[in-house]
Each structure stands twice: as structure tokens, then as C-alpha cells.
Amino acid sequence: MDTGSASKSAIWLKHFIICLIAFVMLYPVLWLVGSSFKPANMIFSEIWFWPRQWNFHNYVSGWFGFQGSSFSRFLQNSALVSLGAVLGNVITCSMAAYAFARLNFRFKALGFALMLMTIMLPLHVTLIPRYILFNSLGWVNTFAPLILPKWMATDGFFIFLTVQFIRGLPKELDEAATIDGCGPVQIFSRIIIPLALPALITTMIFTFMWTWDDFFSQLIFLSDIGKYTVPLGLRLFLDSSSQSDWGPMFAMSVLSLVPCFILFITLQKYFVEGIATSGLKG
């Protein structure tokens, strides 16, 4: 009896500690969201995150307040780039993955080794020649340098992830389909794609997140404010140091985080599995 209640209170203590750490960790995010609804003078004077009065003014002025460009333009641009990247990665990475997992062809081992190498390669090493290439094609300050590479399966990580997944599917299915007269194209589209859906969803989620949050390539390839994506648009707030801009900056920051957050809450299972099975850095 005694040990029972002792261990019970130990469990409560453990829950309390876990919740406390979680609260401290999340406090910056809570404070960000709360502050986005506070008038400017209260952002400084209040430490507690919950606004005493709710105020949507920051959202309105942040939405319209950018040197003639509204925030909706940045959101549209980001959505376009991210969707283009997601489609490209899902289609071309799964095609390459099918070939590596199921087909026999010459130089397969070499190709697979090269693909693994590209995963480890820092992007800096191809960045400058890519810039020169896209510049000579007149594509700098367009979305092409951000989307096109994804249509060429340059994110080896997702090929690898999908290869691993396809290898886990029973080969008998392919063989049965072959006997029924299906060629590789039909096997790919009718059998592999539907069964590898979890891997494809993981690819989609992480491609979306990484493209949405990507700052480095967007900074390099986009220069015109009309082409700016959300990360570049947010950065404009840094140039003005006036404290009255904190509110709108926080409001637009919150808006920029919403898509990834919704994606995470609705597709949590795939996040956790993707990270746990393949070590996606997230």
C-alpha cells in the first residue's frame, strides 16, 4: 500500500517536471503568439503571454505595411514555390527510388553510391556554379532556380527514404503483376505508388517545410520585392528598428508559422515515423 502511493506521487512528480520543462520551452512561442495580439506598448511592459485585451490591429498593419507590397503577395509566392517543389520531389524522387529499388540495370551500384554521396554534400559546393548557370539563362529573380532542381530529384535524401520503403514491400506483388502482363510503368503507377504512400507523404511534408522555411537559396535567387517569399518578406521588418513595428512583425511571424503547424498537427504520425525511421533532421 505504502509503496503504491509513493510510486503514484513519483509519477505525478514526473508529469509535473515534464510539463514544467515543456512550458518553459514553449514559452517563447506562446509569448510570440500572445504579443501579436497586444498593442505595441504592452508588448514591452508585459511578461505574461496572455493578452489582457485582444487587438487585431497588428495583423492589419502588418498585412498592408510593406513598401507597397502586401504580405499576401509573399504568402502567394511562398505557396507557389513550395507547391512546385513538393510536386517535383514527390514525382521525380519516387521514380528514381523505384528504379533503384526494383529494376536491374547497368551501373546501378555506381548510381546508388553517387546518390548517397549527394545527401552528404553541402549545398555550398554547387551553389556558385548553379547561380552562374541560372544567371546566364536569365532565371535569377524568378522561381525557376528554386523549383526546377526539385523536378530533377536533387534531394537524394527522399530517394533514399523511398528506396528503403519500397524494398520493404513484398516482391511477390510485382511478380504477380508481371504475370498478369503489367510492365514496369504499370507496376510503378498501380502497385508501388499506392503502397508507398506513407513514404511519399513524408517526402511531401518535409519538402514543404524545408522549402517554406528555406532562407539561403531564396535570399540568393530572389532580389525583386514583388518576387519575395515569406522569409524574405519577414526580414524586411529587421531593417526598421522602430519598436512600433514589433507588433506587426510578430503578427506576420505568427502567420508564417501557421502552415507548418497545421501540417504537423494533422499529419503527426508521418512526422514521427519519418524522423524515427530515417533520421530526418526536421
Binding site: 515543456a22 514553449l26 517554406w212 522569409p231 519577414l234 506576420m252 508559422l257 507548418c260 512526422f271
Partner: peptide, 16 residues
């Protein structure tokens, strides 16, 4: 506990 990792790579959090 995953939320900071989810959001942390963004410009928004760096500015925060």
C-alpha cells in the same frame, strides 16, 4: 517537445 524543432528553422523564430 517537437514544436521548437518544427518552427525553429524559420526566419520568424530567429527574429523572435
Amino acid at each position: 517537445y517537437y514544436i521548437p524543432t518544427l518552427l525553429g528553422g524559420s526566419v520568424a523564430i530567429a527574429m523572435l
